[in-house]
Simulated assay, not measured.
Amino acid sequence: MTIFVILLIYKFIKGTFEYEKVTRFELIIIPVYSAIMMVLSLENVRSLTAFGLTIILLILGGSIGFLQASQTQIKDTNKLDSHQRPILKVKRNWPYLVGWLVSFAIGISVEVFYGAHIDTTEVSHELFEEVLKDLSAIAFFRSHNAWFIWVLNVATSFTYGACLMVRYPKIREAVRRKK
């Protein structure tokens, strides 16, 4: 199992420094799905502490998303897909990885704030699950996250995608709906 976890982490880190195709899944579907899950999970959480923490996480997550997009590189393949959309590739680089790690650490910190006793085995299990969710759409949609993870995911993924779409208008063309 340990070797499998190491291989997944290696694949995730390596993919951060390689060009990958820009997809609607990453820039549109993940933020929208996360927003829906955030709203649904926040229905059961009604305390002033949770409200304050939600505001803080939205601000931190927005900052992390901005950091993650800061040195992202876009490459135009000068090709079109079957729906006549440009095929673009994105390389996320170090700031994305750093932002991902900070986001992971914030999630663990909030769990501890709410009284969870976390040891190294649990941290490594959480790390495995988070990497798996980033590498697999099936794992992402099957995940059962706490409300604060959804809040953080909405803020980071929305800000990351919005920054890229503002900085590189051609990305909007690449992820638009079929004609």
Rank of each mutant, 00 (worst) to 15 (best):
N145T: 00
A105H: 01
E130R: 14
I55E: 06
D119C: 10
I108H: 01
A162F: 15
V151S: 03
K75T: 06
V90R: 14
Q84E: 14
G99A: 06
N145L: 10
Q71V: 05
S157C: 08
V98N: 01
F104L: 05
V151Q: 05
G62P: 05
R92P: 02
F141H: 10
S157I: 06
L80M: 14
F113C: 13
S41C: 05
K91W: 01
T77Y: 08
L101P: 01
L127P: 10
N145Q: 03
N78L: 09
L80K: 14
I138Y: 13
F104C: 02
A146P: 00
V112Y: 00
E129H: 10
Q84H: 13
D119P: 09
A137Q: 15
A146E: 12
L97Q: 03
Q71P: 03
N145H: 01
W150G: 02
A155M: 08
V112S: 05
A137G: 11
T159I: 04
A69Y: 02
K91T: 04
H83M: 07
V154K: 01
F66N: 10
T156F: 11
G52V: 06
H83G: 03
S124T: 13
S70T: 08
F158E: 10
L48P: 04
A146G: 03
V90T: 09
F140E: 07
E111W: 04
S70M: 02
I138V: 14
W100D: 07
I74L: 15
G107K: 01
L60N: 11
F140T: 09
Q73E: 15
T77P: 06
Y160K: 10
T72N: 11
L48H: 13
Q71L: 12
M37F: 01
L152D: 05
S143A: 07
P86M: 04
I55G: 12
L80P: 07
V112D: 04
L80Q: 13
I64G: 05
V131M: 05
D81F: 07
S41D: 09
W150N: 00
T72R: 04
N145I: 00
E111G: 12
V110D: 09
K79S: 13
D76F: 09
V110E: 01
P95F: 06
S109A: 14
I87N: 08
N93I: 05
T54F: 08
D134M: 15
T77E: 13
V131E: 11
I74M: 08
F158Q: 02
S41A: 11
E130H: 11
L135R: 08
N153W: 04
A116T: 07
Q84I: 08
W94V: 13
F51T: 13
I106T: 14
A69C: 03
W100V: 06
V102E: 01
N44C: 04
P86T: 06
V98Y: 03
L48D: 14
H117T: 14
K79N: 15
F51M: 14
S143T: 06
G65R: 05
T121D: 14
E130N: 14
E130I: 11
L67I: 04
F66S: 05
L88P: 00
R92A: 02
A116D: 12
L127D: 10
Y160N: 07
T156R: 11
R142V: 02
W147M: 03
V123F: 08
D81R: 09
I118V: 15
T156M: 12
T54G: 05
L132A: 13
L135N: 10
E43R: 15
A146H: 10
V112C: 07
D76T: 10
L97H: 01
